[in-house]
């Protein structure tokens, strides 16, 4: 008799559990904004990831300087995605001009947001040895100095390797702005907090590529999973390429890699 009772109870428990799971799953589906979900996934398998962090993938970002044409579409997409206030840039494109005397001229009018419409007049054409565009964004360091210096725990590194900012906790003390060796951080005058490129964490978690990667017309920006041996980023990072990171001497171990980087680039 007792056994039967226990069995019934087990059944009830299982039933209630199942119902609850169903409702929780249902409510979760309602919470997710419909907009992202009706677009096909760009990073396969991302929408199956559940739990607080991405488990199966390790993302890397590659910028191919040999491909970048400096059109600034990445900057435009970025500004649109985040409504970045004028004069501040989460990502920007620098133009390098190096002459035969090894003088380096760098400029980035409006962060490359309007593209490059005029040539540099101050460097004589005949003396130009090398000239190229360098897109800059958050390096997503494995050892981020910005996280180390934050006094309130507002800047943090997630278990999946993204360095993010807690907009509710940041007190805008600017320690992180000073600590970042790559100058990717700024104090957002609208939110009054520190702000920087997040590699579009919100898009990535919903299976979409970062906004800048998505719009790049020449595939100078690549974003992919290093755990997937078939992926383009894995292939490039394991090929005999000239590939490097910015300021390796700082010891921050960036996850942002450059193809075709010159040693003059800082």
């Amino acid at each position: 008799m007792k056994d039967i009772q226990a069995e019934i109870n087990k059944g009830r428990r299982a039933f209630i559990k199942k119902v609850l799971e169903g409702t929780i799953a249902g409510s979760l589906l309602l919470v997710i904004p419909a907009g992202a979900m009706d677009i096909p996934e760009q990073i396969t398998g991302m929408r199956e990831e559940d739990g607080p962090f991405i488990k199966k993938k390790k993302f890397a970002f590659i910028v191919d300087i040999t491909r970048c044409i400096g059109c600034g579409s990445c900057c435009v997409a970025d500004k649109n995605e985040y409504n970045v206030p004028d004069g501040h840039y989460r990502t920007w494109v620098e133009r390098y001009v190096i002459d035969y005397d090894d003088n380096v001229y760098v400029d980035s009018p409006n962060g490359g947001l309007d593209g490059y419409q005029v040539p540099r007049e101050d460097v004589p054409e005949a003396n130009v040895r090398d000239t190229f565009f360098v897109p800059k964004l958050c390096n997503m360091c494995e050892k981020p100095s910005c996280v180390q210096v934050c006094p309130v725990g507002a800047t943090y590194q997630t278990d999946d390797g993204f360095v993010l900012i807690d907009q509710k906790r940041c007190v805008a003390c600017s320690y992180c702005v000073q600590a970042c060796p790559y100058s990717v951080r700024f104090i957002n005058p609208v939110t009054k907090t520190a702000d920087k490129c997040t590699w579009c964490y919100h898009r990535v978690r919903k299976g979409l590529l970062p906004a800048c990667v998505n719009v790049c017309p020449v595939q100078a920006r690549l974003f992919g999973d290093l755990n997937d041996r078939e992926s383009q980023v894995y292939r490039i990072l394991h090929e005999p390429h000239v590939i490097s990171v910015l300021k390796p001497g700082m010891g921050n171990k960036p996850s942002l890699h450059y193809v075709g980087l010159r040693r003059e680039v800082v």
Binding site: G153, T155, Y156, L164
Partner: peptide
């Protein structure tokens, strides 16, 4: 949620994740 995953507010990850997607893809 502070300290749930590390020295930060755990819910901040959810906040960041739920940021509005403004750019779609060509498919949109």
């Amino acid at each position: 949620s502070f300290g749930r995953y590390g020295h930060y507010r755990g819910e901040a990850v959810v906040d960041e994740m739920n940021r509005e997607i403004r750019n779609g893809t060509n498919a949109s």
